[in-house]
Design a binder for these strands. Structure first.
Lengths: 208, 208
DNA sequence: AGCCGTATCAGCCAAAAGGCTGAGAGACGC
DNA sequence: GCGTCTCTCAGCCTTTTGGCTGATACGGCT
């Protein structure tokens, strides 16, 4: 038991090369294929059945990383999937984990961290970068902050800058209902105004 | 004239390795040093005087890419600096260009594009990825969209979710003045509501 | 000196947003 | 079957925001 096959999925060539170079320094890790998109990732998994899939979430076009994780786990249960991405967005972490990801690493993780995450993943161990872990715990600790599907939908449209009237039209509900949803969203996000809600929503979904 | 020395600056190890591997395929390009931060970049430039500096804008801690570009150009005029980053934010493009960047590439650029950008940079040619170029042109075509310093300051606080009253207190101006500034900002951004202003502001400064 | 851009402030009015209470209809779990 | 969650809607009232018009003051450019 000393050879682990790895599939790299990232839409950036430089990241794939870098990761390949990095993993190449470890005798037990073998990159047997690369993919630049979710679709391609699924094909490569079928062909090579790698032990571990290391995948970026942000894929330029087509299927995104989350969707790719879900589908790969549906068809081929065997692979352990590690998310390897730049930003730690609250929503992405949760979605990746329940799509079936075994771990969640940030791209500035130390090489050793990456190696041990891959080795751990094969044995069914979950690994995540410290900042990711703390965010995830925070999510789990505050379940009352989880938005319902409808609320999330509204919040998403809210970040486009729509008014209550427009939101109502877009979702085929009355303005009164929009206001009700908004009130709930504000309460869950801990803000009082739509401006603050938009700010926190975009920032949570986004960067840093 | 067939040897170009390159300094790589990126806070992600994998990106540096990947870029190094990629440039290694070209006989005339030689990566002579790497740096993981703006501060380190300045030191490496002093030591090695590379022909070209390839730099990511987003640097985790300390000096950001823009600042690093400015300082390197101040002390050592000789180097051509290429920005090599993930996202094309309007503001970053403009700031990078007037900080003295010779080109602006996105990380999903084709290898050939990267090579020719580096070779071109040595000869004083500017290169930028097509999506970047189109954004830059749009900025230049619409100079009336440029915010005054005070307006930018307000917009920045706006994205924190503050109310007019709070904005006034924070900036030591009356609420009336806040409203005047906001009206100007909306006009320049082409929006009608503060919600839309926040949304466009954060997105312009940010991602995608 | 005159003009323009920037920043400051005021008042007025209409529209939008937010707080509150209450309430009905499905869906799901136990 | 009963409670809970979610989504839907309504009315009422206050606060906030946005549109408009006009005004003063300072600095720089010509």
């Amino acid at each position: 038991m000393s050879s682990i096959t790895v599939l790299l999925v990232d839409d950036h060539l430089v990241v794939r090369s870098g990761l390949r170079a990095l993993l190449g320094t470890q005798p037990d890790l073998h990159v047997i294929a690369e993919a630049a998109s979710g679709e391609e990732a699924m094909d490569r998994v079928q062909e090579h059945s790698p032990h571990v899939v290391v995948m970026d979430l942000a894929m330029g076009a087509g299927m995104d990383g989350i969707e790719a994780i879900r589908r790969i786990r549906e068809r081929n249960g065997g692979q352990a999937i590690l998310v390897f991405t730049t930003y730690d967005s609250d929503a992405d972490i949760v979605r990746a984990v329940d799509a079936g990801a075994m771990g969640y690493l940030l791209k500035d993780a130390a090489p050793e961290e990456i190696f041990s995450a891959i080795r751990g993943a094969v044995q069914g161990k979950s690994v995540m970068s410290p900042p990711v872990a703390s965010r995830l715990f925070q999510q789990l600790r505050n379940p009352e902050e989880i938005l319902t599907p409808r609320e999330a939908e509204l919040l998403s449209l809210l970040t486009e800058g729509l008014s209550n009237r427009e939101l109502g039209r877009r979702l085929f509900i009355s303005e009164a209902t929009v206001k009700t949803h908004l009130a709930h969203i504000y309460a869950k996000l801990g803000v009082e105004t739509r401006a603050a809600a938009i700010a926190t929503a975009i920032r949570r979904e986004g960067m840093r």
